[in-house]
Design a protein around this nucleic acid. Structure first.
Lengths: 334, 334
DNA sequence: TCCAACTAGGAAAGCGCTTTCCAATCTAGG
DNA sequence: CCTAGATTGGAAAGCGCTTTCCTAGTTGGA
């Protein structure tokens, strides 16, 4: 990757490096228009494209934003990524994307890589682990102490970072209460992996709701936080309760993709939703709009959350907390 | 973003900058183990993280891969992105992501930004425009001439770049022939925007199939290349044909998300798929797995395509062409 | 007409690395 | 024991920019 350099442009325009830089790459000082025009012409003729690496080194700021997601193909994350991408583009910065499963060393690798690339910001979109990972936390702290900004989505990770807080617990409780209000009173919970804070919070909200309404907790079963996890968890639930135990039950899944997987599992067992049992999800991923039966869920403004996270990072108060709460959306499935 | 520098590490270890660099950041020459150990210890103590910008400048290679998609929230692109991300991670590089609509100046901005960041590779995942964009092509050419690698997905964009070629035309023809083979003989096509090569190719394949089978083309209507586009196109089609004209028709959509939108539109008009009319899509996005009626489509190994594109870029023959063809998947919807 | 106060372009010092070239030390063959 | 050849660590020259100082040229008020 060699290319036309600023000094070539400067020479062609017959000015100094300093002047060329001032004309082309924004500076306080604006050279006289006659000169500026000459430089611009030279740049255009030669096809000059500033070397962002060199600029980053000289200005000690890269204009890079790092985003860590669990899985970019998961609609939850791709929606958030879309929001982040949009916000990043608006302020003419670039998005560095990494995928990493919580609890896996890949998260640490991702953060280290972002630190190496001196991204101005790191946005952690995935849920935090229940057990704090020492090494990861230290890496993030060092990054922050060196002047990097950290914004987490979902829940706070540590002091001195920004957070787009999603009140998962309240949303889950609300969902359960609304459902109980329609007369449903036997609930099962299809939880994601129990080491995720998000999963834990939603489960806690579920139980808050149970307590509040006096409804019955029939079972809680854990599984991977994706479509297949929902499918598996649903089958495990069926096994646990026996064929008849599912009838009339309301099954809450930790998120929409799990709910979708669960419905498929139930269907494969010859059960119809909502005729034989009810299912609800969480997140309201865009995918849902064409799904039948339409899925009852807790709506989260995913794209907005992503946008907000990026905005927060660029704002004066990068360490503030923005609160988001979900809205229960009652549809056909429960 | 200030941080510990190599020279601080070198000083602490009591060696020269050169030695420290050789120990920490991989080089032909490996200093003696005693010294190396001292450097590593110092680096660990100080929490040294190499500055990728500085390295890029010195080595004139950034280890960055730029990916341009239309919309990262679209399952088609997020699946491809997943494959790319995976491949990129395997070779320890970083992914720079940009979203840009074909035909929009944002594509040019994205490419320019990637060129500025001196990415080693640019992968264009979105379809090319039917009308070649002079400025964009020039930018890409310059990038390539400066040593950057370009890989396009779907169709070739220009000489001297790699391509993961997807035979959209053949896939569409095959789909139509298979469907005709089951006795369906009246077809309508819900095409995406007519300035996309992908859309044009699929439409051409559709017509090839028509000709081959002697089936009837009832209508072709264009709309945006997304879910809402499918919805709108379906309504437009209904308006064009009148209520009864839809019955018994097979509606092919340019891609799955449009097909999903179309089915929703038909449903909103009180029509059932496949009872009243048939619908098929293209791509086989993962989302489809839980959808009812299950959608007939042409399967494309999306994730693999992304992976392949990245692999190609890193391979010796970065300008080669890899061929992918879709496989017709007959399901309930048609 | 003279000088203080600006203005504007250029020289050069970094930014944090890699890598070439040197010089010093070591190895081993004669 | 001497020397050609191989090793090894270090000095310093870049990589392509930004930005601080300088200096020379202007402007305008007295």
């Amino acid at each position: 990757m060699s290319a036309v350099t600023l000094s070539e442009v400067a020479k062609q325009a017959g000015v100094s490096l300093a002047t060329a830089s001032r004309v082309l790459n924004g500076s306080e000082r604006r050279p006289a228009e006659v000169i500026a025009e000459r430089v611009r012409t030279a740049a255009l003729e030669l096809g000059y494209v500033a070397n962002a690496q060199a600029q980053a080194l000289a200005r000690s700021s890269t204009g890079l934003v790092g985003l860590v997601v669990h899985d970019i193909a998961d609609p939850y994350f791709s929606s958030i990524a879309r929001g982040v991408q949009q916000a990043v583009q608006e302020v003419r910065r670039q998005l560095l994307l990494a995928a990493a499963e919580t609890g896996d060393s890949s998260v640490l690798s991702a953060v280290t890589a972002f630190a190496a690339h001196r991204t101005d910001v790191i946005i952690m979109a995935g849920s935090r682990s229940v057990r704090p990972d020492e090494r990861l936390m230290n890496e993030l702290k060092r990054y922050r102490d060196n002047g990097g900004r950290v914004v987490t989505i979902g829940q706070a990770w540590m002091e001195g970072t920004g957070t787009v807080f999603v009140n998962n617990r309240a949303g889950a409780e609300e969902l359960l209460r609304v459902l109980a209000g329609t007369g449903q009173n036997r609930f099962a919970y299809l939880a994601g992996p129990d080491h995720l804070v998000t999963v834990e919070d939603r489960l806690a909200g579920f139980r808050d709701g149970l307590e509040r309404t006096g409804a019955e907790e029939v079972a809680v079963v854990h599984g991977p936080f994706n479509r297949d996890g929902g499918y598996q968890a649903a089958r495990a639930l069926a096994e646990q309760l026996g064929g008849g135990g599912l009838r009339g039950l309301t099954v809450l899944a930790a998120n929409d993709v799990m709910a979708l997987g669960a419905i498929s599992a139930f269907r494969s067992m010859g059960l119809q939703v909502p005729r034989d049992l009810r299912v609800a999800g969480y997140d309201d991923i865009p995918t849902l709009s064409d799904y039948t039966p339409s899925l009852t869920t807790v709506r989260l403004p995913l794209e907005e959350i992503g946008h907000l996270a990026a905005d927060l990072a660029f704002s004066e108060m990068a360490n503030a907390t923005r609160n988001i709460s979900g809205a229960v959306v009652l549809r056909e499935s429960a």
